[in-house]
Structure formats: structure tokens, C-alpha cells
Design a protein around this nucleic acid. Structure first.
Length: 112
DNA sequence: GCACTGACTCCCA
DNA sequence: ATGGGAGCCAGTG
């Protein structure tokens, strides 16, 4: 399996994350068919061409935190985008119990 | 080819 | 809650 296929698979999964929901690098890797390859997701997103219009901001780490240095321009941008979609941050973290996307088969129902 | 670096995770002290 | 260390592997120099 060429690496380009893995990147494509990852991008496809990310595109499926619904507005207002989030997923983690590890979960995206898992759904894309590459379990144990969270770092690969980070790389794939970093090199993703802009024209794909990926909702990259909906991917956070397993702790529900943004993986950019706090205060960095990128971290602020991601946080803004998420808050605009209604995602709430509590002391720098997202409540994954409430906002985590459960995968391609998730019914997209809002849990509360 | 070797060493180092991450948009990571898990596990354990 | 928090920090350190190991496993991970494609890029980069």
C-alpha cells in the first residue's frame, strides 16, 4: 500500500467528520484502516493541499486538546473554528464524551 | 544510511 | 492531575 493511499484514506475520513463534532488523530487513523498510526494523520493533515477544504480543525488529540502549542496562531485558529461550530472548551479541553464523532457509522445524533 | 523530529498514544510512577 | 518514556514511521538533512 503506497503512502499516498494512506493519506487519501485519511483525508476521506476527515471529510466525514460532521460540523460541531470532533475526532482524534488516533481514531481517524483507525477508521482510515491504519490503527496505531496517529502520527501519520498529523502528517497527512500538515501536507494536505488547501483545495481539499478539509475540516482539519475537527481533529484533536486523544485528550480532547488541540495539539498545537497553546497561544500559537494555529491553535487559536483551530479553537475559533471549533467554537464557531458550537464546540465548547472547558479549561482548554473538549468534552469528548459529548463531541466525539464515533466514526463513519455514527448516526450523527446529538448526544446530551 | 544514520540521526533527529514531529498536528500522537498508551502506560506507569 | 502531571510528567516521563517507549513505540510509532514518514520526512528531512
Amino acid at each position: 500500500m503506497p503512502i499516498s493511499d494512506a493519506q487519501q484514506a485519511i483525508w476521506d475520513i476527515v471529510k466525514k467528520i460532521p460540523v460541531g463534532r470532533v475526532s482524534s488523530y488516533g481514531r481517524v487513523a483507525y477508521f482510515a484502516g491504519y490503527p496505531q498510526h496517529a502520527r501519520m494523520v498529523g502528517r497527512a493533515l500538515r501536507i494536505a493541499p488547501d483545495h481539499l477544504l478539509l475540516p482539519w480543525h475537527r481533529v484533536v488529540n486523544a485528550k480532547g486538546q488541540i495539539s498545537f502549542p497553546v497561544g500559537s496562531e494555529q491553535a487559536e485558529l483551530q479553537k475559533d473554528k471549533l467554537q464557531t461550530e458550537g464546540v465548547v472548551f472547558l479549561s482548554g479541553r473538549i468534552d469528548l464524551e459529548r463531541y466525539a464523532w464515533l466514526g463513519p457509522l455514527d448516526s450523527d445524533l446529538w448526544r446530551m
